[in-house]
């Protein structure tokens, strides 16, 4: 565990909690892509199946359980409790365009052709693009609530911090995982445009709105 890993995990946790609290406090999931949230639930579920096969630490187990629990709580909010506020008309990204290539790739490029390993690889690839329905929704409506942008910022920051964690691990432990690194790079790059808007607009007190 190094400082980048820990702050990355905490940033990820912050993002998830911010989203849940936003929906709970405003009693609304307006502006949130349910499709992205479904993809994140699939990511956590397929990656953390190792909860059943290996124990690493109390920290590791608790975080995995919290991530999975929050992912499904978010889905419950969006598709059941606050369904009336869900903006499905603008959540029109075709997720099969992500699921099919990502599924195919995880069968072709993995470390080991075994069910758990393929599911782990699938979750890594899927996570890298899971935010696209949300970004697509924002580009369609042309704006995002400020609290939603905080969510996106911490969610993007988390994988960027993991990139530093992997540099650290390569340097001090001689350890690297090409699948995670390439997917993590793709994931972080997808947020760059948003990071720019967040820094130049939201942090200066303006609402995030895109030119028509």
């Amino acid at each position: 565990m190094n400082v980048f890993r820990l702050t990355g995990d905490l940033s990820h946790l912050a993002a998830i909690i911010i989203l849940l609290l936003k929906i709970w406090k405003t009693r609304s999931c307006a502006g949130i892509s349910g499709k992205s949230q479904i993809l994140f639930a699939v990511v956590f579920t397929s990656r953390y199946l190792d909860l059943l096969t290996s124990f690493i630490s109390l920290y590791n187990t608790s975080m995995k359980v919290i991530y999975i629990g929050c992912a499904y709580a978010t889905l419950y909010f969006v598709y059941m409790k606050f369904k009336a506020t869900y903006d499905g008309n603008h959540d029109t990204f075709r997720v099969e365009f992500l699921l099919v290539p990502v599924g195919g790739l995880s069968f072709l490029v993995n470390h080991d052709f075994s069910p758990l390993e393929i599911l782990w690889t699938f979750s890594i690839y899927l996570e890298s693009v899971a935010i696209l329905p949300q970004l697509f929704m924002i580009s369609k409506t042309g704006e995002a609530e400020t609290i939603t942008t905080h969510y996106l910022f911490f969610l993007g920051l988390y994988r960027a911090l993991y990139l530093f964690n992997w540099i650290w691990r390569f340097y001090f432990e001689g350890f690297f995982d090409m699948i995670a690194i390439v997917a993590g790079l793709v994931q972080t790059i997808l947020y760059c445009d948003f990071f720019y808007l967040y820094i130049t607009k939201v942090l200066k007190g303006k609402k995030l709105s895109l030119p028509a």
């Binding site: 890993r5 990820h12 470390h111 995982d177 699948i179």
Partner: peptide, 10 residues
């Protein structure tokens, strides 16, 4: 081996 990353990281 990628064993550490697969289970240890989140």
């Amino acid at each position: 081996s990628n064993e550490p990353l697969r289970h240890d990281e989140l």
